[in-house]
Design a protein around this nucleic acid. Sequence first.
DNA 1: TCACAAAGTAACCGTTTAGTTACTGGCTTG
DNA 2: CAAGCCAGTAACTAAACGGTTACTTTGTGA
Lengths: 225, 225
Amino acid sequence: MEKMDEGVRSRSRGGRRAERPQQRDPERTRASILAAATREFAENGIGGARVDAIAERAGTNKRMLYHYFGDKEQLYLAVLEEAYVDIRTAEKSVNLSGLAPEQGIAELARFTWRYFLQHPEFLSLLGTENLHRARWLRQSTRLKELHSHFIGELSDLLERGKAKGLFRTDIDPLNVYLTIAALSCFYISHQYTLSTIFGRDLMEDANIVAWERHIIEATLASIRR
Amino acid sequence: MEKMDEGVRSRSRGGRRAERPQQRDPERTRASILAAATREFAENGIGGARVDAIAERAGTNKRMLYHYFGDKEQLYLAVLEEAYVDIRTAEKSVNLSGLAPEQGIAELARFTWRYFLQHPEFLSLLGTENLHRARWLRQSTRLKELHSHFIGELSDLLERGKAKGLFRTDIDPLNVYLTIAALSCFYISHQYTLSTIFGRDLMEDANIVAWERHIIEATLASIRR
DNA sequence: TCACAAAGTAACCGTTTAGTTACTGGCTTG
DNA sequence: CAAGCCAGTAACTAAACGGTTACTTTGTGA
């Protein structure tokens, strides 16, 4: 995952099938360009990302990048789409319907926090996208149709909680989702300025564990009767 | 505040003193470059910002920009420093020591939310700075010394609240500050992707009012016994 | 088997970009 | 009042950049 530089070429040293080393591999080339672009855009934003740098990181030629993706902006869109597809796919593996209301909310918060923690590049792309007022997200019909199923699951959890008298009756699912997302996203995406200003490393294990507990507690506290 | 294009030049049509139109005005030129740079960096990030665009927006020449600020990066640093000085100055106008603990927390949350709402360029600069892992913030001794006095005021409020038996005793002031900042910052800086995905304009008056109430309620709920 | 399409390379191109040079005009002070 | 410094302008430059052209290599199916 670290060194992409020899990516495509190295296939010749032992491909899937020994009798045909297969020096060419369109899918692999495309995938390695996409992975390299994800890193480059996440690290530098769209204005700071360099097409040459992406090609080099992918271990391929700049020509291939234009061959598979058209231009820099379409490549960025492909990166953004992949990032959204990935999180939506991961979300589907979470099943909240069998859990008690409070446990369900906690599980949803835990998943969101941990996913963001493991995919900082997604948060970075989100930041870039918002800097540009969601220009590419709005442009992409595919992305606009890619809804999170969390809002639905959350509505269900809240209804069950309300019926049991556990939760306040004036709670909006979107508010709960935004609360979880805000507490998770901000802590990670602003870790550098925060750690510098407060002189405390927010990414220390103990602090990470404490903040996870805080997200869950604060979210539940805000919806309990 | 809107049209900077004629900035410096227009001084000749009536300066402070009629007898000396004063075509030159270093301070004004410097200030208009700084204001233009703030907008340009906030809108495009550091990689997307254009030196020529800043000069044009400032209604001056590119040479002046290098004359007053050295180069693009130092100009960015000046913009960042000014933004931090501005918020720290505004914070000082808030006096919480005379308020009851719950009212004090509410006031602090209200101030933070409203300041972010009125200064989205500050949030944008923060995002840019974090994208680059606080490279300029860490570099600037001036900025590292520019602490928020809110943490101190907050500690005091929390102590008083604990003494009265209102608040939990295991509360960390930094956690409370991060909670308020996260709920405020995320909603505003991610408004574009969120509004697009959820098909609801987060910046509608009613939604803004509701979220302010939510920030205050959620923060208080998370610290009450 | 060979023609043709697709995969891949490297050198190139016009434009944009940050930064500079060489200059003009005005303000201040010795 | 002149000398010299500072504010300001416009045209320039070298390098970086996104994107293209012209070409080679490889796999495949008529």
